[in-house]
Simulated scan of single mutants.
Amino acid sequence: MTLKNAIPQPTLIQSLQASIAPAFALHAGVILGVFTVLGDTTLTAADVARALNVDPRRLERLLYALVSAGLLEIHDTGFCNGPEAAAYLVQGEPGYIGEEHQLLDELWRADLMTATSIREARPAAKHDFATSDPEEALAFFRGTAPSALAFGRRLADMIDFEGVHSAIDIGGGPGHSLIGLRETKPGLQVTLLEFPANIILAKKLLAGEPLAHGLRFEAGNIVETPSSTPHDLAILKAVIQVLSRDEAAKAIRNTHASLKSGGRIVISGVGILNDDRVSPLEAVFYDLTFMNLYPEGASYTRREYRYWLSEAGFVDIAFDTMPSGSQLISARKP
């Protein structure tokens, strides 16, 4: 016999609670350098602990957790990297994305403050790009550099660069989106527009990068004024999502003024929601992260972006999805 009002099992709740632990184990493995020490070898827990100068009994617990998560494998003589860990978590390999965990460290700490941010009506883990501690800001930029580089590479494949001779990355942090573009568009004239303090940090991160040669740095704030030079392409990656609605509208208007006739704007980030506001999931949950980090930052809907772009004078507004899953918005200045 079944009861009409039978109490359901807490399956979903338990699944959500359990999903956090493997991510934290991954984070610990990256921060300690476990995957890099293993490289393409098989080592015992004692061997790895000796290389990292840590307690082998404590480390062994993490190694088994990483096996359970599917990142490490056990062979007769010890532990080794699984396929994904070998490709993406070994420092020095071309696909290395471990630096993103410096950024994730801040984001995940912020996510723990959601209840506090709501209760106290303020960003409980506030991040201010203009006044950040230089070392913290440098770590933040270093964490965003790999994804910015990948974004630039993908963007070069996704849009038509015929007639595009100059590009500006507005609020582009470390400037690596422009490096990604230049890998296949070496003749492209590129400009990074950032706060003065952030330009100093970007120059540090780009030092010795051949594709940064000739990169122009422009100190400014797109919410307040346009670029001093018109461009063929303007990139706003992860910018609008840290602004209030009023600031977002101003930034898009000033970007319009920073473009030549026929120039294009490209907006991307994790904070672009479908109009139903419950998808994609990444944008839905980053909306909470932004609330914890920024006074007015948020995930905004396609409808809001369409309105701001149209109001600024853009036409041919289009929405697309990048291979990474991030949303991409493009439009043209007549």
Rank of each mutant, 00 (worst) to 15 (best):
F24V: 13
G325R: 11
Y96L: 01
E73I: 12
V37R: 06
A156V: 05
D76M: 08
R302Y: 04
R277E: 14
P94N: 05
L38G: 08
E73C: 10
D246C: 01
G263S: 09
T144N: 13
T114Q: 15
A145F: 07
D105V: 13
D111A: 09
R245F: 01
Y300T: 04
N198L: 02
L103W: 09
Q17R: 12
I159V: 13
A234I: 12
E247C: 03
D133Y: 05
A49R: 09
S261C: 07
S228H: 14
C80P: 00
G143H: 10
L103S: 13
A212Y: 03
L206V: 02
L104Y: 11
R303W: 06
A148L: 10
G313S: 03
R302V: 08
Y286Q: 09
Y96R: 01
L243S: 05
H165C: 14
Q102M: 11
K185A: 12
A137Q: 13
A85S: 13
V190T: 14
D133Q: 10
N221R: 00
G82S: 00
L62E: 10
S228W: 04
I317A: 03
G269H: 03
Y64E: 15
I272F: 05
A137T: 00
S244A: 00
K185M: 12
S177P: 07
T131R: 05
P146S: 00
E162Q: 15
T77L: 09
G95F: 12
I7T: 13
A202P: 07
E194H: 00
A219R: 06
P230W: 05
L89H: 06
A212G: 08
P134M: 00
L107G: 00
L215H: 05
R245V: 15
G180D: 08
Y88P: 06
A110M: 00
I265M: 01
A85C: 09
T255Q: 00
L112H: 14
A49N: 09
L293E: 12
L138D: 06
A18S: 11
K333G: 00
A331F: 01
E99I: 04
